[in-house]
């Protein structure tokens, strides 16, 4: 016979509810390992308040950071990938697409939207790295091309936010020609004197670097982003040596003359609108 007897029920809180703080209240910076309030992190445009590390974010977060009141109209939201080559590697391409769609809630690796930044109308296409490495197939190419068409039609600036490993292998020749297609549309923007700003974020490599990402009237980047044509691993294998520190960072690319400037994400919106206002005169 025990001294005390429980009169009510025993403790029945399931393990997953046993938490000291609600999920997502605190954000741990993957770079400096310091903690900040999630709200603070978000207000700081998803960059670390301690070390300025720029978190990798997707299209929705970029739209929220850039568009006034987070309001925008998405274009071609329902476009999704076909399988023109009936491509099968270890998995059939359509099932890979379907799985990724379910996992990410995205249709493909790029979203396009129209809205205002500090009152200026603009079209923005933004890549999502979480969708097969932000790889460019027909959908990405077509969405960017149509986004540029939207800018041409409405005579408003175009902003491209790149974040991609390059062209998508599963659409082979079609993917390659998206480099041509997007560049062709940029030639149209040139003809119509529409400003085209290319923001390169972490990472931007391969066929994306070798086409629209490097063709902005302004090529700009977020600090610390990996930017290059060939990936670091491939280069290392080619030259058989370790790569120098800071190789292929945004700072390195700026130093070598391929960027106009590097901009902190929290300053991006104001910087863009100032720049576009000067162009308007």
């Amino acid at each position: 016979m025990s001294w005390f007897q429980r009169t009510g029920k025993g403790i029945q809180t399931p393990t997953e509810l046993k938490r000291e703080a609600p999920d997502g209240l605190w954000h741990l910076c993957p770079e400096c390992k310091q903690v900040m309030h999630t709200r603070e992190h978000k207000q700081n445009a998803y960059t670390c308040i301690h070390c300025n590390y720029h978190d990798k974010i997707g299209s929705e977060a970029y739209f929220q950071v850039l568009f006034d009141d987070g309001a925008y109209k998405e274009l071609d939201a329902d476009m999704f990938s076909a399988d023109p080559l009936e491509f099968v590697d270890t998995k059939a391409y359509p099932s890979r697409i379907k799985q990724t769609q379910e996992k990410t809630g995205l249709k493909d690796a790029c979203r396009t939207a129209e809205g205002k930044i500090n009152g200026i109308n603009i079209t923005i296409s933004c890549m999502d790295f979480s969708f097969i490495g932000g790889s460019m197939g027909s959908v990405v190419g077509e969405k960017i091309a149509r986004g540029m068409d939207n800018s041409l039609k409405k005579k408003i600036p175009f902003l491209m936010i790149s974040k991609s490993g390059g062209a998508r292998m599963m659409e082979a020749g079609y993917s390659l020609m998206q480099m041509a297609k997007t560049s062709a549309k940029i030639a149209r923007l040139d003809q119509a004197k529409i400003p085209y700003i290319s923001l390169l974020t972490d990472p931007t490599t391969g066929g994306v670097t070798a086409s629209f990402a490097m063709l902005g009237d302004f090529n700009i980047a977020e600090p610390g982003s990996l930017i290059g044509f060939a990936g670091p691993r491939v280069i290392k294998e080619t030259i058989g040596k370790e790569l120098p520190k800071g190789f292929q960072t945004a700072e390195f690319i700026l130093e070598h003359g391929f960027l106009d400037f590097i901009v902190d994400r929290k300053d991006l919106k104001d910087k863009l609108s100032s720049l576009l206002k000067i162009l308007k005169k």
Partner: peptide, 15 residues
């Protein structure tokens, strides 16, 4: 895909 090629902007040149 070399070191100098990257320094001199392989991607930009092709684009």
């Amino acid at each position: 895909p070399g070191l100098e090629a990257e320094e001199r902007g392989q991607g930009e040149a092709i684009a």
